[in-house]
């Protein structure tokens, strides 16, 4: 089973990227199953179903989405095998920039959009820095110069990634991404495999439902900000 993780900030066009590319993979004879991870709700499963793709949804709810992902990804592989697929695409939304769902050895794709600003590649953490392929969307509405600067900043943040320009509306770039996806490594199981980047060690009362603000409630792993000037 080819395993491919697709991650990126909200609303960059991850689903459009997967949909357009899956069409190319299907045409090449691959049997693609998609698992959509999200935090609270998603309508993307309907979009996948409309495109004739087999899809399953995982909602993290009140659990950290990254923890939810890692606790379920091997079950996703089992699901995909049971459904007769040979390629599993795990699309994760709702992750914070601190983490990444990327797994050692499995093709890791990060989707970012040019509209988010030319400095964004620097702000996204391991999700982009540890990806094998960085897909850049929405280039059709910004200038060529901004596209080039953005792509340059992506390469600076992650020099070893392949950069793919993608138009989620026309599907421009899908052929190229499909070429990379078709070469993704296969796994019998993900049991014993490792994430490329460790999860945060922060466990504090707010992780488990605390809502009150104030010193008394800040226990466990707490870090305080340093302020500019005399504002402290």
């Amino acid at each position: 089973m080819r395993v491919i993780t697709v991650a990126g900030p909200p609303s960059v066009g991850k689903t459009a990227v997967v949909l357009k590319t899956a069409a190319h993979l299907a045409a090449a004879g691959l049997r693609v199953g998609v698992v959509k991870f999200d935090s609270l709700s998603t309508q993307d499963d309907a979009a996948y179903a409309r495109a004739g793709l087999d899809v399953s949804v995982g909602l993290a709810g009140n659990v950290c989405p990254d923890h939810f992902f890692v606790s379920n990804i091997d079950d996703c592989l089992t699901w995909a095998r049971a459904r007769g697929h040979d390629t599993l695409v795990a699309e994760s939304a709702g992750l914070c920039n601190r983490c990444a769902p990327h797994i050692k050895g499995a093709l890791a794709i990060c989707v970012v959009d040019t509209l988010s600003g030319i400095h964004t590649p620097r702000k996204i953490g391991p999700m982009l820095k540890l990806a094998d392929v960085v897909v850049i969307t929405k280039g059709d509405i910004v200038s060529q110069a901004e596209r080039e600067v953005f792509a340059f900043n992506v390469r600076k943040a992650n020099p070893r990634a392949v950069v793919v320009a993608f138009n989620g509306i026309t599907g421009q770039g899908a052929g190229e991404l499909a070429f990379h996806m078709a070469q993704a490594a296969g796994f019998e199981t993900l049991e014993g495999q490792h994430l490329r980047y460790p999860m945060p060690s922060a466990v504090c009362p707010y992780c488990v439902g605390e809502t009150a603000i104030g010193e008394d409630h800040q226990r466990g792993n707490v870090r305080k900000m340093a302020f500019a000037g005399d504002g402290s």
Partner: peptide, 12 residues
């Protein structure tokens, strides 16, 4: 290929 279209803007 560099592309230029009427839909493109400077956003920065």
């Amino acid at each position: 290929v560099a592309q230029l279209s009427q839909n493109m803007n400077f956003v920065v």
